[in-house]
Computed example of a mutant assay.
Amino acid sequence: MGISTQAQQFAHFLESVHAKASTPGLDLAVVRDVVDTHASASTEPEGVTYAGRGRRRRPRPVGHP
C-alpha cells in the first residue's frame, strides 16, 4: 500500500509553509499568510452538523445532570 493522497497533499502543504516561513526578515503580511494557510490544512468532515448542540460539547459523566 502506498502513501495516501491526503498524506501527499499534507506533505506538499507543509513544504509550502516551510518555504514561506524560511524567508529571512518576514514581514507581517507573510506571517499572516502563513497563519491563514494553517486553517486550510484541515476541513470539516462531510455531513457533520453542529446544529442543535448546546454549549456543552463533551458528554457528561455518568450520574451528573
Rank of each mutant, 00 (worst) to 15 (best):
M1L: 15
G2N: 14
I3E: 13
S4N: 03
S4Q: 05
T5K: 08
Q8A: 03
Q8N: 06
Q9T: 03
Q9M: 06
A11Y: 02
H12N: 04
H12L: 04
F13V: 00
F13R: 00
L14V: 07
L14D: 01
V17I: 15
V17H: 01
H18T: 09
A19G: 05
A21D: 03
S22L: 07
S22A: 10
G25Y: 09
L28D: 06
L28C: 01
L28V: 03
A29W: 00
A29E: 09
A29Y: 01
V30M: 02
R32W: 05
D33G: 07
V34G: 02
D36H: 05
D36Q: 03
H38N: 00
A39C: 02
A39I: 02
S40A: 08
A41M: 05
A41R: 04
E44Q: 13
G47Y: 09
V48R: 11
V48W: 10
T49C: 12
T49D: 13
T49G: 11
A51F: 06
A51I: 06
A51N: 09
A51R: 10
G52V: 12
G54K: 14
G54R: 12
G54D: 10
R56Y: 13
R56D: 11
R58E: 10
R58I: 11
R58A: 15
P59K: 15
P61C: 10
V62M: 13
G63F: 10
H64T: 14
H64L: 14
